[in-house]
C-alpha cells in the first residue's frame, strides 16, 4: 500500500526547501515530520484551535487544513523564523515580558497570527485585536496577558490605535 510521493519545493523562513510527501500529508505534518520544524503544533486538526497557524504567501492559514502538496512554490513562515538569531521579535519579547504564555502549546499559533496582524497596514485597536485573535484557543492564560502582550508589541511598533468607543 505504498502511496506515491511527490517532491514539494517551497521557501520556509527564507530558505528553499524540498520535501517528499504523500498527497494526504497536511502542511503541518510536512513541516513537522519532513522539515523537522516542530514549532508548529497540532491542537485539533479541524481548523478550530489555531495552534497550527502559519503564514503562507503573506496570509495566515491553518496548516492542518492545507496539504503539503498544495504548498508547491509557496513562501511559508513559521514560528522558527520570527527571531533574528538571538534577538527575539518585539512580539516574542512582549509575550515573554507580559507573561502571555503558560504551557506554551498554543503560543506559536498566536505569535504567527499576531505577527501577520501587526504587518498589515491598518492600525491595531483592541477591537480588531480581539476579533482577529479570537481565531485561536488558549486554555492557560485566560487571554488577558495575550491581549496585553500584543498591545505592548503594537505600541512598540507604532501600530496601536485606541478604539473609537471607550
Amino acid at each position: 500500500m505504498s502511496e506515491p510521493k511527490v517532491t514539494v519545493c517551497c521557501t520556509v523562513n527564507g530558505q528553499k526547501v524540498e520535501a517528499d510527501v504523500v498527497p494526504r500529508m497536511s502542511l503541518a505534518d510536512m513541516l513537522r515530520e519532513e522539515l523537522h520544524l516542530t514549532g508548529t503544533h497540532l491542537g485539533c486538526e479541524h481548523g478550530v484551535c489555531g495552534a497550527c497557524t502559519i503564514i503562507v504567501n503573506g496570509a495566515p492559514v491553518r496548516s492542518c487544513l492545507m496539504f503539503g502538496i498544495q504548498a508547491e512554490g509557496a513562501e511559508i513562515r513559521t514560528v522558527e523564523g520570527l527571531a533574528d538569531g538571538d534577538t527575539l521579535s518585539p512580539l516574542q519579547r512582549a509575550f515573554w515580558e507580559k507573561h502571555g504564555l503558560q504551557c506554551g502549546f498554543c503560543t506559536p499559533g498566536f505569535l504567527m497570527l499576531a505577527t501577520w496582524m501587526l504587518e498589515q497596514p491598518e492600525p491595531v485597536t483592541e477591537e480588531r485585536l480581539r476579533h482577529v485573535l479570537s481565531s485561536n484557543l488558549c486554555r492557560c492564560t485566560g487571554y488577558t496577558n495575550i491581549v496585553r502582550a500584543v498591545t505592548a508589541a503594537a505600541k512598540e511598533m507604532g501600530k496601536w490605535a485606541e478604539s473609537a468607543a471607550a
Binding site: G50, A59, P60, R62, L65, M66, M117, V132, S135
Partner: peptide
C-alpha cells in the same frame, strides 16, 4: 464576511 469563521479561514 466579518462573521465568517476567523481570519485564517477567510484567507483561504
Amino acid at each position: 464576511a466579518a462573521n465568517i469563521a476567523h481570519t485564517p479561514i477567510r484567507s483561504r
